[in-house]
């Protein structure tokens, strides 16, 4: 399958449902589309980085269990823009929003 829709990629590994839901809501609020793909177990940094590599928009989110990270294409694998362990609702929403704002060239919050 050729995947070239302009979307933010979210790579997950057994994600917490509440965390994922808030992140998606954050992206939606900014008016950008996203796609979720379940991946085999891996490191959180790597998930986000790979998602950013694969997304046509160059913006990717990784969610592992309760933890979440956001990366942009061009950044090093170990240097995500944001990474949270066990984030609160606000943080999840902001992370999602930021992954979308990055595409719109707006300052991150």
């Amino acid at each position: 399958m050729v995947m070239n829709r302009p979307t933010i990629f979210i790579y997950t590994n057994q994600p917490d449902r509440a965390v994922l839901k808030e992140i998606c809501a954050g992206i939606e609020e900014e008016g950008i589309f996203f796609e979720i793909f379940e991946q085999s177990p891996g490191e959180l940094n790597h998930l986000a980085w790979q998602a950013a590599q694969d997304s046509m928009l160059g913006s990717g989110v990784g969610v592992c269990g309760m933890d979440a990270a956001f990366s942009m294409r061009g950044l090093k694998e170990k240097r995500c823009v944001e990474i949270y362990f066990n984030p609160g609702r606000e943080q999840c929403r902001r992370l999602g929003g930021n992954s979308a704002r990055a595409i719109k060239r707006q300052p991150l919050r």
């Binding site: 950044l75 090093k76 240097r79 823009v81 704002r101 990055a102 060239r105 300052p107 991150l108």
Partner: peptide
């Protein structure tokens, strides 16, 4: 080297 994301869009 990539610019620190805190400066992004600003």
């Amino acid at each position: 080297e990539s610019i620190d994301p805190r400066f992004y869009g600003r």
